[in-house]
Each structure stands twice: as structure tokens, then as C-alpha cells.
Amino acid sequence: MAVVALKDNYIGEVADRVENFHGNQVVYFNWEKHLMFCAATAFPLPPDMPFGAVLEQILPTYYGMHPDFAKIDWSKVTWTVDGKAFTPDPAKSLKDHGVRHKSLIRFTTPGLDGIDGTCS
């Protein structure tokens, strides 16, 4: 049953369908083992945006204040989008990497486990 309702076959309006975001899609990022950032972050991004913009603009702007950020060896970072591993290609678009509306991108930085290694 999709919902217990007074009306038969009650259908709800999908509040967050992609058409409502003016050409963008919502993408979430999470830096694993860095809970100083309390939750994954959310951004409205064009699907054709190159992945390079994530690496050069978004992540440094919003995660750069963490003391681990400058120490990241980007060649060793592992990535998943919606649970599937991928290797980013800066020239290719988000869409080319399988990023869709409300996808979650998680990245892990081996050897870096937050402030004093406490995963913060």
C-alpha cells in the first residue's frame, strides 16, 4: 500500500523532481572519516558540469579549512557514486560519471582520518 488514505489510490506530488531545479540536479558529497563536517553536503549542479570543477572549486571551497585537506594525495583517493566505485576524469561531465539527480558521491582519503585520527 502506497499510503493509507481516505481517498482511493491517493497520489502525492513529488516535491523534489528534477524539473523543479531549473536545469540543475542535486548532488551530495561526503568526505569519509571527517565528521567535523556534520553531514554530507548538497549542491544544485548542472549535469554537464565537468568533474574537474568538483575537484578544483567545490571541494577546496567547502572542505579546504580542514587541516587534512592540504595533505590529500588525490591519486590515492577512492570514490563511489551511489555505492559504485569510479575513477574521476576531470574532463568528463558529472553525467558521464553516472551522477544523476540526488546521487551521493563519497570519497575516502587513505591515511587521513580526521583531527588527531578521531574521524572528525
Binding site: M1, V3, V4, Y10, G12, A15, F21, N24, A42
Partner: peptide, 20 residues
């Protein structure tokens, strides 16, 4: 999962900001 038609309507502040 029990009542998806209800919660697809959630007014999530972050998404509402993005929607303008």
C-alpha cells in the same frame, strides 16, 4: 517504504532553497 506517497511530498528546506 510503508507510505511513500506521503513522504515524496516532504518540504525539505535545503531542496526548497535550491528550487528558489
Amino acid at each position: 517504504d510503508n507510505e511513500p506517497e506521503k513522504y515524496v511530498q516532504s518540504w525539505l528546506p535545503v531542496h526548497q532553497i535550491f528550487q528558489g
